[in-house]
Amino acid sequence: MEFFQTNIIPAEVVVQILAFLIVFFTLRKLAWKPVLESLEARRSKIRGEFESIEAAKKEIEALKAEYAASLQKIEDQARAKLQEAIDEGRRISREIQDKARLESQATFEKAKENLAIEVAKARISLRREIAEIALDASEKVLREKMSDDKKQQEKILSIIEEMEKAL
């Protein structure tokens, strides 16, 4: 009890309690709350920023994949179109070749026909000329002398035959 009495001064205890309460309420209002709140705000801000970065990253990844896919698609399309163009070119060249072949055939046939016509024409005109020559010759023979008729006729006939054979 003596220890208690020498060491405890009631008034001092009361003043110390008041002092601590003043410090406590002051610091709670002016230091702890603002600092802890700002720490929490900063924490949530950083968390939010990290989350948004993560989201942006994911978005970029998705876009990248999308671009890669569309690029692949475009490439495939280009390749298909190129192939189509090559096929078309081949087809056209084949058509042109076929057409040219047909045309040349037709031209050839026509030329052949023309040639035959020309030959026929020539043959007709030749015959006419021969007939004229024969007439001329017969005239000449007749004009020379008609002594031995029979002999002369045979001669003329043989000449005509020879001419025909020559044709």
């Binding site: 060491n7 405890i8 001064i9 001092e12 205890v13 009361v14 110390q16 309690i17 601590f20 309460l21």
Partner: peptide
Amino acid sequence: AWSTTAALGLI
């Protein structure tokens, strides 16, 4: 001093 710590203990 015990007075100080007693005050803190009581609080």
